Simulated assay, not measured.
Amino acid sequence: MDGSAADLFEDLTILEQPQMEDEYLQIRFDYWDDFVGAFEPSKVLRLLQQFFTDAEIDSTDHQRVQLLREIEHWSQTEMPTEQRESLVRQSWGNYQTNGPTYRFVILFAAGRRVSGWSRRLTVGFRVPVDLPAENREQLLAFLRSLRMGEPVLSDAGDEEPGSP
């Protein structure tokens, strides 16, 4: 194994999971480990735009949208004050941990689209299993260019709030 995208994606090819439509290629930090570091989501988007000049970037902070929706829900739901305050604290804590969350779409030739996200603890792509190896290499190269760890491939991603 030379660390190429072909090697990285080979693992899921071997598993042969025909029901799976997408794979997740990402760098993800574990909030609970001893590593101190995080992504700056807006900077990641700037670098992404330089790397993939045709990228479509959604500048909505989806983590904030979720926070505001949750706070509104808690304020309108009948419950004891202590419980409401606890739920609001949890919502704020989730926002502070994950920070801003932005979405984007990478456009490849032949109309191929790959969605992705950038947040404090993860940057990743939702990759169709039939995406050509050349495009997978480009995604892998971008993640490696961030110099924040080795990308991993899995069948479950740490996607942003409100993702389909």
Rank of each mutant, 00 (worst) to 15 (best):
residue 1 M to A: 11
residue 1 M to C: 10
residue 4 S to P: 00
residue 8 L to C: 06
residue 11 D to P: 01
residue 12 L to W: 10
residue 16 E to V: 02
residue 17 Q to H: 14
residue 17 Q to V: 07
residue 18 P to K: 06
residue 21 E to H: 11
residue 22 D to G: 01
residue 27 I to F: 11
residue 28 R to T: 13
residue 28 R to P: 00
residue 29 F to P: 02
residue 29 F to A: 10
residue 30 D to I: 12
residue 30 D to Y: 09
residue 31 Y to G: 05
residue 31 Y to K: 13
residue 32 W to H: 13
residue 33 D to H: 14
residue 33 D to R: 14
residue 37 G to P: 00
residue 38 A to E: 03
residue 39 F to R: 00
residue 42 S to F: 13
residue 43 K to W: 02
residue 44 V to P: 05
residue 44 V to T: 04
residue 45 L to W: 08
residue 47 L to T: 03
residue 49 Q to K: 15
residue 49 Q to L: 04
residue 50 Q to C: 07
residue 51 F to K: 12
residue 52 F to G: 09
residue 52 F to Q: 06
residue 53 T to Q: 14
residue 55 A to V: 00
residue 57 I to H: 02
residue 58 D to Y: 02
residue 59 S to H: 14
residue 61 D to N: 02
residue 62 H to V: 01
residue 62 H to M: 02
residue 63 Q to S: 12
residue 64 R to F: 05
residue 65 V to D: 03
residue 66 Q to M: 13
residue 66 Q to W: 09
residue 68 L to G: 04
residue 69 R to S: 13
residue 71 I to E: 09
residue 75 S to Q: 07
residue 77 T to Q: 15
residue 77 T to G: 01
residue 78 E to K: 13
residue 85 E to F: 00
residue 85 E to W: 02
residue 87 L to I: 03
residue 88 V to G: 03
residue 88 V to E: 12
residue 90 Q to I: 05
residue 91 S to L: 03
residue 92 W to M: 09
residue 93 G to K: 11
residue 94 N to K: 09
residue 95 Y to C: 01
residue 96 Q to T: 02
residue 97 T to G: 00
residue 97 T to Q: 12
residue 99 G to T: 07
residue 99 G to I: 04
residue 100 P to K: 03
residue 102 Y to L: 08
residue 102 Y to N: 07
residue 105 V to A: 12
residue 105 V to P: 00
residue 105 V to N: 09
residue 107 L to Y: 09
residue 108 F to P: 00
residue 109 A to W: 04
residue 109 A to K: 15
residue 110 A to F: 12
residue 110 A to I: 05
residue 113 R to F: 03
residue 113 R to D: 08
residue 115 S to T: 14
residue 117 W to Q: 11
residue 117 W to T: 01
residue 117 W to L: 10
residue 121 L to H: 10
residue 123 V to G: 05
residue 125 F to C: 11
residue 126 R to A: 06
residue 127 V to L: 08
residue 128 P to H: 11
residue 131 L to I: 07
residue 133 A to F: 14
residue 134 E to W: 14
residue 134 E to V: 14
residue 135 N to E: 15
residue 135 N to S: 15
residue 137 E to P: 06
residue 137 E to M: 11
residue 138 Q to E: 13
residue 138 Q to C: 05
residue 138 Q to T: 04
residue 140 L to R: 12
residue 142 F to N: 03
residue 142 F to C: 09
residue 143 L to Q: 11
residue 146 L to S: 07
residue 147 R to Q: 11
residue 148 M to S: 11
residue 148 M to A: 12
residue 149 G to V: 12
residue 150 E to Y: 05
residue 152 V to I: 11
residue 152 V to R: 15
residue 153 L to M: 09
residue 154 S to D: 03
residue 155 D to I: 04
residue 156 A to I: 10
residue 156 A to P: 00
residue 159 E to R: 15
residue 160 E to C: 06
residue 162 G to C: 08
residue 164 P to R: 12
